[in-house]
Amino acid sequence: MNPTYLVLEIRRTFRARRSYLLTLVLPPVVLSVVGVTQPELVVSVALYGAILAVTGCGAGVAAERAQGWTRQLRLTPLRPGAYAATKVLAAMVLGALSIVVTLALGAARGVDLPPAVWLGCALACWVVSAPFAALGLFAGYLLRVEAVTRVLSPVVTLLAAAGGLFVPLDGALGQSARLLPTWGAGELARAPLTTGIDAGAVANVVLWTLVLVAAAAWRFRRDTARV
């Protein structure tokens, strides 16, 4: 990994106003729509913003493949894996900012938690959002940039809703939610608010991380293989 490239990539993330504003604005809007009273919902929506941000690396990858930038990089010592890692880390910086913005809005609206719990939730959100970068990479190495930008945010939003990040789900919906990656991530992100960690949620996160990383690695290898 190259530090100059990483710094430049982070600066580029904040130059693409349209995409980063969406990431920073959408979660507060969702928060206003669902109405804030419970800390659980604030944390869930913060996680949603972080997932939006980290999957955003996929659009960048798709665009840069189309522009021949990834090919250009192959004429340098930078390895394709380091390129992907750079894209993911830059997206995770945006994800961290999104989490801070959403949690700060929650606090401003009267959600009262001890600082250690706020910090724990913020870190938990950030960590469990990371595997979704693999979903972004998978899409970025699979699809054209137009398709990635059109598909990824709606898919993430749908996963967030169906995984119970916006409103708690009961009955059959609640049962099916447990199968989605957003459910496990949500449970772990909210863990600092409760006592104890759900073993089912841990299993969910571990399994989905494996699936998403395997999918991303498959497309990544396909794309970077010398033919």
Binding site: R12, Q72, L75, T76, P77
Partner: peptide, 17 residues
């Protein structure tokens, strides 16, 4: 290539706008 001993100018692409 990795050692920088050979380089290339391609016809199109390869730049970030």
């Amino acid at each position: 290539v990795a050692a920088g001993r050979v380089a290339a100018v391609m016809q199109t692409g390869g730049l970030l706008r």
